[in-house]
Protein backbone atom coordinates (compact mmCIF):
# COMPACT_ATOMS: atom_id res chain seq x y z
CA UNK A 1 0.00 0.00 0.00
CA UNK A 2 2.87 2.37 0.58
CA UNK A 3 4.31 4.07 -2.40
CA UNK A 4 7.91 3.53 -1.38
CA UNK A 5 9.46 2.83 -4.74
CA UNK A 6 10.81 -0.55 -3.87
CA UNK A 7 10.49 -2.18 -7.20
CA UNK A 8 9.58 -5.79 -6.91
CA UNK A 9 12.42 -7.63 -8.41
CA UNK A 10 12.61 -11.22 -9.63
CA UNK A 11 13.49 -12.83 -6.35
CA UNK A 12 14.54 -16.13 -4.98
CA UNK A 13 11.73 -18.37 -3.88
CA UNK A 14 10.97 -18.06 -0.23
CA UNK A 15 8.44 -20.13 1.69
CA UNK A 16 4.97 -18.60 1.46
CA UNK A 17 4.68 -17.92 5.17
CA UNK A 18 8.07 -16.27 5.33
CA UNK A 19 7.15 -14.04 2.43
CA UNK A 20 3.96 -13.05 4.16
CA UNK A 21 5.85 -12.06 7.30
CA UNK A 22 8.39 -10.27 5.18
CA UNK A 23 5.67 -8.30 3.44
CA UNK A 24 4.10 -7.35 6.75
CA UNK A 25 7.44 -6.20 8.09
CA UNK A 26 8.13 -4.08 5.01
CA UNK A 27 4.68 -2.49 5.10
CA UNK A 28 4.29 -2.25 8.84
CA UNK A 29 2.85 1.31 8.86
CA UNK A 30 0.23 0.41 6.28
CA UNK A 31 -0.70 -2.75 8.12
CA UNK A 32 -1.09 -0.83 11.36
CA UNK A 33 -3.01 1.92 9.56
CA UNK A 34 -5.47 -0.45 7.95
CA UNK A 35 -5.83 -2.33 11.22
CA UNK A 36 -6.60 0.94 12.98
CA UNK A 37 -9.13 1.81 10.30
CA UNK A 38 -10.91 -1.52 10.65
CA UNK A 39 -10.90 -1.24 14.45
CA UNK A 40 -12.40 2.24 14.29
CA UNK A 41 -15.12 1.17 11.88
CA UNK A 42 -15.98 -1.80 14.12
CA UNK A 43 -16.05 0.45 17.17
CA UNK A 44 -18.20 2.93 15.29
CA UNK A 45 -20.70 0.29 14.24
CA UNK A 46 -20.99 -0.87 17.84
CA UNK A 47 -21.06 2.50 19.59
CA UNK A 48 -22.79 4.84 17.18
CA UNK A 49 -26.15 3.97 15.70
CA UNK A 50 -26.24 4.58 11.98
CA UNK A 51 -22.44 4.66 11.70
CA UNK A 52 -22.47 2.06 8.95
CA UNK A 53 -24.61 3.81 6.39
CA UNK A 54 -24.22 5.15 2.90
CA UNK A 55 -24.84 8.63 4.23
CA UNK A 56 -22.06 8.44 6.78
CA UNK A 57 -19.63 6.75 4.41
CA UNK A 58 -20.23 9.50 1.90
CA UNK A 59 -19.65 12.28 4.40
CA UNK A 60 -16.50 10.59 5.71
CA UNK A 61 -15.11 10.19 2.22
CA UNK A 62 -15.96 13.78 1.37
CA UNK A 63 -14.13 15.18 4.39
CA UNK A 64 -11.26 12.74 3.91
CA UNK A 65 -10.96 13.93 0.31
CA UNK A 66 -10.37 17.54 1.36
CA UNK A 67 -7.90 16.44 3.99
CA UNK A 68 -6.19 14.07 1.58
CA UNK A 69 -5.80 16.74 -1.07
CA UNK A 70 -4.41 19.22 1.46
CA UNK A 71 -2.00 16.60 2.83
CA UNK A 72 -0.38 15.73 -0.49
CA UNK A 73 2.15 18.53 -0.24
CA UNK A 74 2.67 17.93 3.46
CA UNK A 75 3.55 14.29 2.71
CA UNK A 76 6.16 15.23 0.17
CA UNK A 77 7.69 17.89 2.40
CA UNK A 78 7.77 15.36 5.25
CA UNK A 79 9.53 12.86 3.00
CA UNK A 80 12.37 15.38 2.82
CA UNK A 81 12.31 15.76 6.59
CA UNK A 82 10.48 19.09 6.74
CA UNK A 83 7.00 20.36 7.55
CA UNK A 84 4.94 22.99 5.76
CA UNK A 85 2.89 25.04 8.20
CA UNK A 86 1.75 27.53 5.57
CA UNK A 87 -0.88 25.11 4.22
CA UNK A 88 -3.86 26.39 6.27
CA UNK A 89 -3.12 29.99 5.38
CA UNK A 90 -2.82 29.30 1.68
CA UNK A 91 -6.09 27.38 1.85
CA UNK A 92 -7.75 30.31 3.62
CA UNK A 93 -6.28 32.84 1.20
CA UNK A 94 -7.44 30.89 -1.86
CA UNK A 95 -10.84 30.44 -0.27
CA UNK A 96 -11.46 34.19 0.05
CA UNK A 97 -9.66 35.19 -3.14
CA UNK A 98 -11.86 33.01 -5.35
CA UNK A 99 -15.17 34.78 -4.61
CA UNK A 100 -13.33 38.06 -4.74
CA UNK A 101 -12.10 37.24 -8.26
CA UNK A 102 -15.54 35.97 -9.28
CA UNK A 103 -16.95 39.29 -8.14
CA UNK A 104 -14.70 41.07 -10.62
CA UNK A 105 -16.55 39.20 -13.34
CA UNK A 106 -13.88 36.60 -14.02
CA UNK A 107 -15.17 33.13 -14.99
CA UNK A 108 -14.88 30.81 -12.01
CA UNK A 109 -12.87 28.20 -13.90
CA UNK A 110 -10.26 30.74 -14.95
CA UNK A 111 -10.11 32.16 -11.43
CA UNK A 112 -9.53 28.72 -10.00
CA UNK A 113 -6.74 28.02 -12.46
CA UNK A 114 -5.10 31.33 -11.64
CA UNK A 115 -5.31 30.65 -7.92
CA UNK A 116 -3.81 27.17 -8.19
CA UNK A 117 -1.01 28.62 -10.27
CA UNK A 118 -0.52 31.39 -7.71
CA UNK A 119 -0.41 28.71 -5.03
CA UNK A 120 2.38 26.96 -6.90
CA UNK A 121 4.35 30.19 -7.16
CA UNK A 122 3.79 31.10 -3.52
CA UNK A 123 4.81 27.61 -2.45
CA UNK A 124 7.95 27.77 -4.54
CA UNK A 125 8.82 31.10 -2.98
CA UNK A 126 8.29 29.61 0.47
CA UNK A 127 10.60 26.76 -0.50
CA UNK A 128 13.26 29.12 -1.84
CA UNK A 129 13.24 31.20 1.33
CA UNK A 130 13.20 28.29 3.76
CA UNK A 131 15.73 26.07 1.98
CA UNK A 132 18.74 27.35 3.87
CA UNK A 133 17.02 27.17 7.24
CA UNK A 134 16.64 23.39 7.29
CA UNK A 135 15.52 22.59 10.84
CA UNK A 136 13.83 25.94 11.21
CA UNK A 137 12.11 25.84 7.85
CA UNK A 138 8.75 25.14 9.41
CA UNK A 139 8.90 28.40 11.38
CA UNK A 140 9.64 30.18 8.13
CA UNK A 141 6.63 28.53 6.51
CA UNK A 142 4.50 29.69 9.43
CA UNK A 143 5.62 33.30 8.98
CA UNK A 144 5.18 32.94 5.25
CA UNK A 145 1.63 31.71 5.69
CA UNK A 146 0.80 34.71 7.86
CA UNK A 147 2.15 37.10 5.28
CA UNK A 148 0.17 35.39 2.51
CA UNK A 149 -3.11 35.34 4.36
CA UNK A 150 -2.63 38.94 5.52
CA UNK A 151 -2.00 40.05 1.96
CA UNK A 152 -5.00 38.14 0.65
CA UNK A 153 -7.26 39.66 3.28
CA UNK A 154 -6.06 43.17 2.52
CA UNK A 155 -6.70 42.56 -1.17
CA UNK A 156 -10.23 41.22 -0.64
CA UNK A 157 -11.12 43.96 1.79
CA UNK A 158 -9.95 46.72 -0.55
CA UNK A 159 -13.11 46.84 -2.64
CA UNK A 160 -15.66 45.75 -0.06
CA UNK A 161 -17.37 47.39 2.83
CA UNK A 162 -16.73 44.63 5.37
CA UNK A 163 -13.53 42.86 6.24
CA UNK A 164 -13.12 39.14 6.55
CA UNK A 165 -15.69 36.98 4.79
CA UNK A 166 -16.28 37.33 1.09
CA UNK A 167 -19.44 36.32 -0.70
CA UNK A 168 -20.08 35.81 -4.37
CA UNK A 169 -22.46 33.86 -6.53
CA UNK A 170 -20.78 30.50 -6.82
CA UNK A 171 -21.41 28.55 -10.01
CA UNK A 172 -23.53 25.48 -9.52
CA UNK A 173 -20.91 23.13 -10.94
CA UNK A 174 -18.39 24.18 -8.31
CA UNK A 175 -20.95 23.63 -5.57
CA UNK A 176 -21.76 20.25 -7.08
CA UNK A 177 -18.10 19.18 -7.03
CA UNK A 178 -17.66 19.71 -3.35
CA UNK A 179 -21.09 19.58 -1.78
CA UNK A 180 -22.32 16.71 0.32
CA UNK A 181 -25.13 15.93 -2.13
CA UNK A 182 -23.00 16.43 -5.22
CA UNK A 183 -23.43 14.02 -8.09
CA UNK A 184 -20.84 12.52 -10.40
CA UNK A 185 -22.39 11.70 -13.78
CA UNK A 186 -25.65 10.94 -12.10
CA UNK A 187 -24.09 8.82 -9.37
CA UNK A 188 -24.67 10.05 -5.80
CA UNK A 189 -20.96 10.59 -5.20
CA UNK A 190 -19.55 14.08 -4.66
CA UNK A 191 -17.05 14.57 -7.51
CA UNK A 192 -14.35 15.75 -5.11
CA UNK A 193 -14.03 12.15 -3.95
CA UNK A 194 -13.41 11.09 -7.52
CA UNK A 195 -10.92 13.91 -7.89
CA UNK A 196 -9.10 12.69 -4.78
CA UNK A 197 -8.94 9.14 -6.12
CA UNK A 198 -7.60 10.43 -9.44
CA UNK A 199 -5.00 12.61 -7.71
CA UNK A 200 -3.95 9.64 -5.57
CA UNK A 201 -3.52 7.34 -8.55
CA UNK A 202 -1.56 9.94 -10.52
CA UNK A 203 0.63 10.80 -7.53
CA UNK A 204 1.44 7.19 -6.75
CA UNK A 205 2.24 6.56 -10.38
CA UNK A 206 4.46 9.61 -10.68
CA UNK A 207 6.34 8.96 -7.46
CA UNK A 208 6.97 5.37 -8.47
CA UNK A 209 7.99 6.01 -12.01
CA UNK A 210 9.78 9.30 -12.25
CA UNK A 211 13.21 10.50 -11.32
CA UNK A 212 11.57 13.17 -9.17
CA UNK A 213 9.77 10.54 -7.11
CA UNK A 214 12.92 8.56 -6.56
CA UNK A 215 14.82 11.74 -5.69
CA UNK A 216 12.37 12.35 -2.83
CA UNK A 217 13.20 9.07 -1.17
CA UNK A 218 16.89 9.33 -1.91
CA UNK A 219 17.13 12.78 -0.33
CA UNK A 220 15.02 11.79 2.65
CA UNK A 221 17.27 8.79 3.24
CA UNK A 222 20.63 10.48 2.92
CA UNK A 223 21.32 13.97 1.67
CA UNK A 224 24.99 13.47 1.07
CA UNK A 225 24.55 10.17 -0.72
CA UNK A 226 21.86 11.77 -2.87
CA UNK A 227 24.10 14.69 -3.76
CA UNK A 228 26.73 12.18 -4.88
CA UNK A 229 24.17 10.92 -7.38
CA UNK A 230 23.69 14.49 -8.62
CA UNK A 231 20.23 14.87 -7.11
CA UNK A 232 19.66 18.56 -6.48
CA UNK A 233 18.34 19.05 -2.99
CA UNK A 234 17.38 22.64 -3.70
CA UNK A 235 15.30 21.85 -6.76
CA UNK A 236 13.50 18.99 -5.05
CA UNK A 237 12.85 21.10 -1.97
CA UNK A 238 11.48 23.86 -4.19
CA UNK A 239 9.30 21.42 -6.11
CA UNK A 240 7.67 19.84 -3.05
CA UNK A 241 6.90 23.23 -1.57
CA UNK A 242 5.45 24.38 -4.88
CA UNK A 243 3.28 21.26 -4.97
CA UNK A 244 2.26 21.93 -1.38
CA UNK A 245 1.27 25.52 -2.23
CA UNK A 246 -0.58 24.47 -5.37
CA UNK A 247 -2.49 21.67 -3.65
CA UNK A 248 -3.36 23.98 -0.74
CA UNK A 249 -4.78 26.55 -3.14
CA UNK A 250 -6.67 23.78 -4.94
CA UNK A 251 -8.16 22.57 -1.65
CA UNK A 252 -9.03 26.15 -0.76
CA UNK A 253 -11.02 26.76 -3.93
CA UNK A 254 -12.80 23.40 -3.66
CA UNK A 255 -13.73 24.22 -0.07
CA UNK A 256 -15.56 27.28 -1.37
CA UNK A 257 -17.92 24.96 -3.18
CA UNK A 258 -18.38 23.06 0.07
CA UNK A 259 -19.01 26.01 2.35
CA UNK A 260 -20.65 28.44 -0.05
CA UNK A 261 -18.85 31.56 1.13
CA UNK A 262 -15.26 32.73 1.35
CA UNK A 263 -14.13 32.33 4.91
CA UNK A 264 -10.49 32.85 5.78
CA UNK A 265 -10.40 30.55 8.80
CA UNK A 266 -11.65 27.61 6.75
CA UNK A 267 -8.07 26.38 6.46
CA UNK A 268 -7.21 26.56 10.16
CA UNK A 269 -7.96 22.93 11.07
CA UNK A 270 -5.60 21.82 8.32
CA UNK A 271 -2.57 23.19 10.18
CA UNK A 272 -2.51 20.11 12.33
CA UNK A 273 -4.73 17.63 10.57
CA UNK A 274 -2.39 17.51 7.58
CA UNK A 275 0.49 16.76 9.93
CA UNK A 276 -1.64 14.23 11.78
CA UNK A 277 -2.73 12.47 8.58
CA UNK A 278 0.89 12.19 7.46
CA UNK A 279 2.02 10.90 10.84
CA UNK A 280 -0.84 8.49 11.42
CA UNK A 281 -0.32 7.08 7.96
CA UNK A 282 3.23 6.26 8.93
CA UNK A 283 5.39 8.68 6.97
CA UNK A 284 8.47 9.28 9.04
CA UNK A 285 8.90 12.97 9.82
CA UNK A 286 12.65 12.39 9.77
CA UNK A 287 12.42 11.81 6.03
CA UNK A 288 12.85 8.80 3.84
CA UNK A 289 10.02 6.44 4.75
CA UNK A 290 6.32 6.34 3.93
CA UNK A 291 4.52 8.03 1.11
CA UNK A 292 1.23 9.35 -0.18
CA UNK A 293 -0.34 5.90 -0.08
CA UNK A 294 0.25 5.96 3.68
CA UNK A 295 -1.21 9.44 3.98
CA UNK A 296 -4.40 8.32 2.23
CA UNK A 297 -4.81 5.71 4.96
CA UNK A 298 -3.92 8.32 7.57
CA UNK A 299 -6.54 10.76 6.23
CA UNK A 300 -9.17 8.04 6.32
CA UNK A 301 -8.24 6.97 9.85
CA UNK A 302 -8.37 10.55 11.06
CA UNK A 303 -11.71 11.26 9.42
CA UNK A 304 -13.30 8.03 10.64
CA UNK A 305 -11.98 8.78 14.11
CA UNK A 306 -13.44 12.28 14.01
CA UNK A 307 -16.75 10.92 12.78
CA UNK A 308 -16.73 8.38 15.60
CA UNK A 309 -16.00 11.07 18.18
CA UNK A 310 -18.76 13.27 16.78
CA UNK A 311 -21.10 10.33 16.86
CA UNK A 312 -20.23 9.79 20.50
CA UNK A 313 -21.27 13.37 21.13
CA UNK A 314 -17.84 14.94 21.56
CA UNK A 315 -17.40 18.62 20.87
CA UNK A 316 -14.98 19.92 18.28
CA UNK A 317 -12.63 20.97 21.06
CA UNK A 318 -12.57 17.48 22.51
CA UNK A 319 -11.88 15.97 19.10
CA UNK A 320 -8.94 18.32 18.74
CA UNK A 321 -7.57 17.26 22.09
CA UNK A 322 -7.88 13.57 21.23
CA UNK A 323 -6.13 13.99 17.87
CA UNK A 324 -3.40 15.98 19.60
CA UNK A 325 -2.83 13.15 22.03
CA UNK A 326 -2.76 10.62 19.21
CA UNK A 327 0.13 12.22 17.35
CA UNK A 328 2.91 11.43 19.84
CA UNK A 329 2.38 7.66 20.08
CA UNK A 330 2.04 7.45 16.31
CA UNK A 331 5.30 9.30 15.75
CA UNK A 332 6.93 7.22 18.44
CA UNK A 333 5.97 4.17 16.44
CA UNK A 334 7.63 5.25 13.20
CA UNK A 335 10.11 8.02 13.77
CA UNK A 336 11.93 7.97 17.07
CA UNK A 337 15.13 9.92 16.97
CA UNK A 338 18.20 7.79 17.68
CA UNK A 339 19.60 7.76 21.20
CA UNK A 340 22.55 10.03 21.74
CA UNK A 341 24.71 7.04 22.68
CA UNK A 342 24.47 5.77 19.13
CA UNK A 343 25.50 9.09 17.62
CA UNK A 344 29.02 9.29 18.99
Amino acid sequence: MTSTPNTTFPRMKAPARGRMLQWIRCNRPSVIGVGLLVALVVMGSLLVPGFISVQNARSILLLAAFLGLASLGQTMVALLGGLDLSIPYVIGAANILLPSLINTGMPAGLAMAILVLAGLVVGALNGALSYKLQGQALIMSLGFGFAVVGAAQIYTTLGSAVGGNVFAPIPAWLTNIAAFNGRFFGLPIPPVIVIWIAVTVVTLFIVRNTWFGHSLYALGGSRVAASRLLISEFRTWLAVHAISGGMSAFTGVLLLGFSGGGYVAVGDPYLFTTVAAVVIGGTSLLGGGGGYGSTVIGALVLTVLTSLLVGMGMSFAAQQAVVGLLIIPMVALYARTPHIRSQI
Partner: peptide, 13 residues
Protein backbone atom coordinates in the same frame (compact mmCIF):
# COMPACT_ATOMS: atom_id res chain seq x y z
CA UNK B 1 2.77 20.61 17.88
CA UNK B 2 0.63 17.92 19.41
CA UNK B 3 0.59 19.88 22.66
CA UNK B 4 -0.72 22.88 20.75
CA UNK B 5 -3.59 20.84 19.38
CA UNK B 6 -4.30 19.12 22.68
CA UNK B 7 -4.25 22.26 24.81
CA UNK B 8 -6.25 24.33 22.33
CA UNK B 9 -8.95 21.67 22.52
CA UNK B 10 -8.76 21.37 26.29
CA UNK B 11 -8.95 25.13 26.77
CA UNK B 12 -12.18 25.28 24.79
CA UNK B 13 -13.57 22.37 26.79
Amino acid sequence: LSSYLFLTGVNLM
